[in-house]
Write a protein that binds this DNA or RNA. Structure first.
Lengths: 147, 147
DNA sequence: TTCTAAATGATAATAGTTATCAATTAGCAT
DNA sequence: ATGCTAATTGATAACTATTATCATTTAGAA
């Protein structure tokens, strides 16, 4: 399991390698992306960042998330009922478990979907490149009525 | 495999059972939902419907999709890069295969995720209610350069 | 046939995201 | 350390997808 610090350095290096400046705003955004436990939305990231950067623009956060996504260093998840969510720690397809009450997202440790992927390729004649697997339910906190 | 006609009748009956009027607009929307092969967006549905109902409002389509969704008769899929998609034939969790070029969606025939669901419940202590599984790739038509 | 609450159509409003442009600044060159 | 400049930011307008509002229409019960 790679550390948050390692992920931070990887993303910052990727920005440098692609000719981008390492601004204080970018450092702050990447830090939140890799430290976050729950795949935050842009709005979440902006709200957290305002503590240390009260004048940072929401547009700056959006622009930088798009940039980091274009470098393949963040996984973007869309849900039907709201804004997109971002995972800076595992920027590749992996399962999620989403609480439908508090919207928390956790990453369970499940077996690879490679077998299914092969079955799908045979059945559909698609060339499969990636996948998405989410389970939706109620977390133990919300079951206990803490939220 | 249930027929489109049967699905149509089921949805219409559900609307009646819930005290809703069966307007010509609703009949047209439900028909497109059950006849569609590729999980259309609201915009798609509206574009198709305009042929026979040139004055139907986009808001009417949106309102009715929301209504049918609230009755549990349509599956709603959100993607990070655009509008939501709707499946009126299988309004319950099932796998999808999405072409990243032409955006076509097909439903492969895969084994149940019940085993994984149990593993997830044990590991995360969530009560799992449903799931989402999508594979992303390139369909055979787009591989052949037809699109 | 009449009546009325539900539904529609048109459009304003909202939320999430992207584009624009003047001002600022990271970092390279000296 | 200083100067320079293209990249970046901040503020906000604009865009897209969706929802809210309200006058008008209509499905269907009586």
């Amino acid at each position: 399991m790679i550390t948050h610090k390692k992920r931070f350095e990887t993303i910052i290096q990727k920005l440098k390698d692609n000719g981008h400046k390492i601004t204080p705003q970018r450092i702050a955004i990447v830090k939140i992306l890799v430290d976050s436990e729950g795949h935050p939305s842009v709005e979440n990231i902006h709200a957290q960042i305002k503590t240390d950067f009260p004048t940072m623009s929401l547009a700056t956060v959006y622009r930088n998330i798009v940039l980091i996504k274009s470098l393949g260093e963040v996984l973007e998840l869309g849900f039907p009922d709201g804004s997109n969510r971002y995972d800076g720690n595992k920027p590749y397809p992996h399962p999620h478990v989403v609480c439908i009450k508090c919207k928390k997202i956790v990453d369970p440790d499940l077996d690879s979907l490679d077998e299914m992927k092969k079955e799908v390729e045979v059945e559909t004649e698609f060339k499969i490149l990636n996948h998405r697997l989410d389970f939706f339910g109620i977390c133990s906190d919300c079951q206990a009525g803490k939220v």
